[in-house]
Design a protein around this nucleic acid. Structure first.
Lengths: 251, 251
DNA sequence: CCAATAGTGTCTTTCAGACATTATAAC
DNA sequence: GTTATAATGTCTGAAAGACACTATTGG
């Protein structure tokens, strides 16, 4: 443990500058790190996730999560990098983004030891513009079933995607997270349907509404209702300044 | 977004080799990344966390979390790196380690844009050997109070430590995580005291024991009891093969 | 009127919290 | 016996789940 080999590292302040510089303790250079985003939506009652066909090696032509490198000059922090990548590669600005997990080991990338900062995003399907990225054919939404997603994915992206879906299914049980899969304005039956679709089971209407009322994160939009050939439903929106609410108990 | 500057990156397979090599897409080199560990214990009824005095720049002589670089040749994955660092720097092998969160931005390190993979560990105070690391004076356990830890910490380590304490306090409410702050064998009153110390409130004995029985992760050690000048307490251990249990409801 | 869904009310069973009681050791 | 704490039992109020009922639209 007392390796005394003189070592070099690289000045991380100056992009473009390639002069090796001695940095204390840095006997090892940093592994290659990336940022990948799992973005989920709910369309036609199905959970879907965004994939891109890789344009370059390794795994050229293989489906993968949208991802990229950190741009130190542009990205204030890790989440900013994730948002920039999602916007640049898929044209999407998500209202909800959280850190999922870091994945790093010697096997996940044929180039060697790498790590990725995986992020987790949700978006309402109505917010999806059709024009994503430059090459429209290379970006697509894929259904998520119990076993994951249909195509084989590059790197360990199948694991990362599975981890994201697991987190969504878990958080649905005790948080208000599913609202981010709906447009800004929605009805309580709309919201209940989202919960039911993700959980895969029916829920009692009365209990569901009691829970949402207690959580106190929604407010009715005055005067607005959803008309149909039945009793119209009150339209709600998230109360200003509120983020994800954790329920007292499981749903 | 269409930067076409020819770029170089570094071959991450070969440690020591310093030949710049063209890697597809890599217009940006990886930022400096580290692994830091927040390890918590419970001693004398107080939550404590391990700090080290930094031996080198930046922040030389300032208290910091034990941390280090990834050693691609030795570390199978991120958690392995965290365990190696903890063992090498503090002589500690922890029974419980989970990923906390990644922290990365342009401000946290005076050297520039860096990121750290922060890990969260727990250990029983009776497992602590006194001989940690090479320089015993540079490693110490510090009390954690509501505002964090007494000394000013290097980098954003105060934030990272706060995040770890927050996670512990949160998980105590609904998981069996506190068992890892106790020796392998313990009594139910011992365990209840741990929960009470972390949560800072008294709990009902009957309800507590019911919860633990439901969770079904403990087994009595046959014939073993803790003697005292009162009714002796049954000694328990964690059932084989069981990891952290999530309770149905909040404690 | 009917059909369909939104929204509210009621009842029952379950369960968590508070508290009481019993058990078993040392002295 | 007393003291101290372990361990279990009982009671009660709150609340979750199941279900019934009412409300409001279009046709």
């Amino acid at each position: 443990m007392q390796k005394q080999k003189a070592a070099q590292a690289f000045d991380v302040r100056a992009k473009g500058r390639r002069t090796p510089k001695v940095v204390d303790e840095a006997q090892y250079q940093s592994p290659l790190v990336t940022v990948d985003v799992v973005i989920l939506t709910l369309r036609d009652g199905k959970l879907q996730l965004l994939l891109m066909k890789r344009a370059s090696k390794p795994f050229r032509g293989v489906w993968a999560l949208p991802g990229g490198y950190i741009h130190p000059e542009e990205d204030a922090d890790l989440e900013a990098a994730a948002r920039r990548i999602l916007l640049a590669k898929a044209g999407i600005e998500t209202p909800y983004m959280e850190q999922l997990q870091a994945f790093g080991n010697a096997q996940r990338d044929p180039r060697g030891w790498t790590a990725t900062f995986a992020y987790f995003a949700l978006i309402a399907s109505d917010s999806l513009s059709l024009r994503h990225g430059s090459n429209a054919e290379e970006v697509a939404w894929w259904d998520v079933n119990e076993h994951g997603v249909e195509p084989a994915l590059a790197f360990d992206h199948a694991d990362i995607a599975a981890s994201a879906v697991k987190r969504l299914r878990s958080k649905v049980e005790y948080t208000s997270l599913p609202v981010h899969l709906l447009p800004k304005k929605f009805t309580l039956p709309d919201l209940q349907r989202v919960y039911e679709q993700i959980l895969g089971r029916r829920m009692d209407k009365s209990a569901f509404r009691k829970r949402m009322a207690e959580a106190d994160f929604l407010e009715p939009v005055p005067g607005e209702v959803r008309a149909a050939s039945n009793r119209p439903a009150q339209i709600y929106r998230i109360k200003r300044g509120l983020t994800t609410i954790f329920f007292d108990r499981t749903i």
